[in-house]
Nucleic acid binder design. Structure first.
Lengths: 153, 153
DNA sequence: CTCTTTGACTTTCTTTGACTATTAATATTA
DNA sequence: TAATATTAATAGTCAAAGAAAGTCAAAGAG
């Protein structure tokens, strides 16, 4: 069950927890060499796990002394939930993206692990056994609906 | 006489008894190779013998590093939830009935009010905007799936 | 007829690599 | 010396290949 992308994700998160700071600077090639992978795999990890919607902001610079700066956004609960509901999710949401969003919500202590499990179950492909409106559309609805209960309170 | 599906079923159950843990991760292709059968036969076994109604919860992931995770629901520990999942809900659940069930669960302190709100949102008619499988069938699925997370923990 | 087995085809993630773009450092020229 | 060109050092993009799992319908067995 060796998934390098997950390992790199954890490595970065662990590094951030370690320094205590909310920003981390890495060098793409160095990191790639550390994990013995193609440099572009780092981009893959960043775009799938450290996007704005997961609560991270990324800046980078090319050329000599270049870097990638990963910043963990400290957004308040409601604005973050609003962003998810009104901007990110839209009318289609894949299962993978849903799972990643939920993982981050738990990491940000916006939901408990029980709540995460409940929501994961609700947006799971196996639960949403539909044809006519595509699964991703139904999932988007359910997800937005669930998240909005958290804003209401 | 030799029903391969039964043998695979037993093999998986034996594996779970062996490890003592309530979850087991397998790789579909590996298992298929072990039994010299088509990979899709594993799906057949899982869907006929390891569904939620049979007391198991399944998660899976495709792509590199993919897996199938089978978790046994320890129903004895949660009789009320089990009753709901295995007897009450069945394969169709109206919105009214879902709301009643959730209200009851909160009154019995099995779920928090937040959890109730989340689940209500998930099984709401507005979230489940489907035609082809009737809403009540999809709702039953989602509901059982969510409730089974409470047994799993 | 029902349940099981098989296999071709599909879908979803991940990994890799060739090619491109940008920036900083350095060398060259006016 | 100031301006400009060149080179080296980074990071970015995109599509193809790889690695799983899922679906569905037809064939087979009881």
């Amino acid at each position: 069950m060796f998934r390098l992308s997950d390992i790199i994700e954890e490595f970065i998160k662990e590094l951030m927890r370690g320094t205590g700071a909310d920003t981390l600077e890495i060098q793409r090639n160095e990191l790639a060499e550390h994990f013995n992978c193609a440099p572009s795999q780092i981009n893959y990890v960043l775009s799938t796990r450290f996007s704005i919607d997961k609560g991270y902001y990324i800046e980078s610079r090319r050329g000599g002394g270049g870097y990638i700066r990963i910043q963990k956004l400290e957004i308040a609960r409601k604005p973050y939930l609003s962003h998810l509901i009104f901007e990110h999710i839209g009318d289609s949401l894949t299962q993978m993206d849903a799972l990643r969003v939920l993982k981050n919500l738990e990491e940000k202590n916006i939901i408990s692990s029980r709540e995460r499990a409940i929501m994961e179950a609700a947006v799971n492909d196996k639960s949403i056994n539909v044809f006519s409106p595509p699964k991703d559309a139904v999932r988007a609805n359910i997800m937005k609906s669930m998240l909005s209960t958290l804003i209401r309170e």
